[in-house]
């Protein structure tokens, strides 16, 4: 059986659809037997769902740089 550390790693990757089928099979087996990892997986999946639901927006790096420059100018 894979370790809890490995299971957490696969769990994180699967949140971004980056786990392979074989990894997921081994991970599913692990969480069948490990309650701690099952709880972690539930929370981790919920976090992904919350992030999707929140539809977070971010300013582009260039926008922030422009804002910084403008603010700096204003500060002088």
């Amino acid at each position: 059986m894979i370790s809890c550390e490995k299971a957490a790693d696969i769990c994180n990757k699967s949140q971004y659809n980056e786990a392979t089928t074989w990894q997921i099979v081994r991970f599913k087996l692990h969480i069948l037997l490990c309650k701690t990892c099952a709880v972690f997986t539930k929370k981790n999946t919920k976090l992904t769902h919350l992030c999707d639901q929140a539809n977070l927006q971010q300013l582009q790096k260039e926008d922030k740089e422009a804002m910084k420059a403008a603010l700096k100018k204003e500060l002088q």
Partner: peptide
Amino acid sequence: PNTWIDKYADYLFNYAI
């Protein structure tokens, strides 16, 4: 003010949007 953009720009942006 020097740290405003790094610390709060995204938060304010989400609030505004």
